[in-house]
């Protein structure tokens, strides 16, 4: 069994894991971080998106063993203490979520997008989120949530 050491949301964790254990199952079942979800079998829906060494990845398409040595941030670790991340604020303010199931992955993907492009156009936001499926919102308010986080909607308020 591979032994892995990862830093998850700022805490170093070490576990022996089965070779076949998916990263998402490690996070959910071993670490109890159930905010990262599984929505499909084909790395299509993005519900399992986390940050691995600072970038958005689909944790259902990686083995836990592949993450050995990595720094991971999940939705549970995105806020700074009680202070929500601007995207978390944006999703709430713009009603960017309904059932909430896609939301963690959507937020984690959008965070990577804004890290790379702090002032995206609407089209860039839509293309940047193409790997995440939402069935509730029609994406309208998700786009606005990202715009909110990017500080693009302040004039309207």
């Amino acid at each position: 069994m591979p032994k892995i050491t990862v830093t998850v949301n700022g805490t170093q964790r070490t576990h022996d894991v089965e070779g076949r254990l998916l990263l998402v199952h490690y996070l959910r079942d071993v670490l109890g971080l159930t905010g990262t979800h599984v929505g499909c079998d084909t790395s299509s829906c993005g519900a399992c998106t986390i940050h691995l060494d600072g970038h958005a990845v689909k944790s259902c398409s990686m083995l836990a063993a592949q993450a050995d040595g990595a720094t991971i941030t999940t939705i549970e670790g995105l806020a700074s203490g009680d202070e929500l991340h601007p995207l978390q604020v944006g999703f709430k303010e713009e009603h960017g979520l309904q059932c909430g199931f896609c939301t963690p992955g959507m937020i984690m993907c959008a965070a990577d997008l804004l890290n790379r492009n702090p002032n995206p156009t609407e089209q860039e936001i839509r293309e940047g989120l193409e790997g995440n499926i939402c069935r509730c919102t029609g994406y309208h308010n998700i786009v606005r949530a990202v715009q909110h986080a990017a500080g693009q909607l302040t004039e309207e308020v």
């Binding site: 159930t34 905010g35 549970e76 009603h95």
Partner: peptide, 23 residues
């Protein structure tokens, strides 16, 4: 009024509790 949703807090912080999250 467009009151912001009360339930959002748990969903945006990864604390929603769906059935598969229950052990």
């Amino acid at each position: 009024k467009s009151v912001k949703r009360i339930e959002d807090k748990r969903f945006i912080t990864g604390k929603g509790r769906y059935t598969d999250d229950i052990n």
